[in-house]
Design a protein around this nucleic acid. Structure first.
Length: 210
DNA sequence: AAGGGGGGCAACCGCCACTTG
DNA sequence: GCAAGTGGCGGTTGCCCCCCT
């Protein structure tokens, strides 16, 4: 199918956001809430693409954003989650309150990647460099969990009913990571769990923390 | 003091999945 | 079931700032 552009690009601003644009977007969302990003720019009086507005709000303007340096605990958590999930930044962000996927992705690419390399660890495989035999295959048991340890929906943007189950056999070792991550096969019909895929492009890998 | 290079980060792009008619 | 519209995600780009020479 042909794709239509997400917005009319001829009359939209690009590049860095101005204070005035930020104020307009913030004021509009505070008044009307998030939703319908496509029509939001026009309604808010912004010459921006809806996607751009969404990104700006999620990554920069949201009031619950933490911002500032990552703590050592956050560092380690990101590394561990990445070893389990790979580049699923939105999932990783879901376990770090106040952090966005974009922020974590940037942080990974600029800081952690180097940190791991300096430790002699391959940032992609999380294995010691030059020791391919070091890690044996293990299977990590993921449960089709939908909620975190406080009972909140794991994905910040996911409906509970979207939480899904899927099976993966993960070739990595994370001996000190106990997140109780669980998976189950996509075909597994657990009556207690909605098996709709929660993660796109992932053959239904849904990850939650119990 | 100047400028070149690299790092950090905000924003854009393109694709895919979900929803709706 | 299909097509179109929309939202969301991950990869990438480009600008700005800081540091080093």
């Amino acid at each position: 199918m042909g794709r239509s552009p997400c917005c009319e690009k001829a009359h939209t601003n690009k590049g860095a956001w101005t204070k005035e644009e930020d104020d307009r977007l913030t004021a509009y969302i505070k008044a009307h809430g998030e939703g319908c990003w496509r029509s939001l720019p026009k309604a808010a009086g912004l010459l921006r693409c809806g996607k751009s507005c969404r990104l700006r709000w999620i990554n920069y303007l949201r009031p619950d954003l933490k911002r500032g340096n990552f703590s050592d605990e956050e560092d380690e958590l990101i590394i561990k989650l990445h070893s389990l999930l790979g580049n699923k930044w939105s999932l990783i962000a879901g376990r770090l309150p106040g952090r966005t996927d974009n922020e974590i992705k940037n942080y990974w690419n600029t800081h952690i990647r180097r940190k791991l390399t300096s430790r002699g660890i391959d940032p992609v495989t999380h294995r010691a460099i030059n020791s391919d035999h070091a890690a044996s295959n293990i299977t990590i048991s993921f449960e089709a969990a939908q909620r975190d340890d406080k009972g909140a929906v794991f994905r910040r943007d996911a409906e509970p009913t979207k939480a899904a189950a899927a099976a993966i056999t993960h070739p990595l070792k994370c001996p000190d990571l106990n997140l109780d991550l669980c998976i189950s096969p996509p075909s597994h019909e657990d009556p207690m769990v909605d098996t709709k895929p929660v993660v796109k492009r992932e053959a239904g890998v849904g990850v939650g923390v119990v």
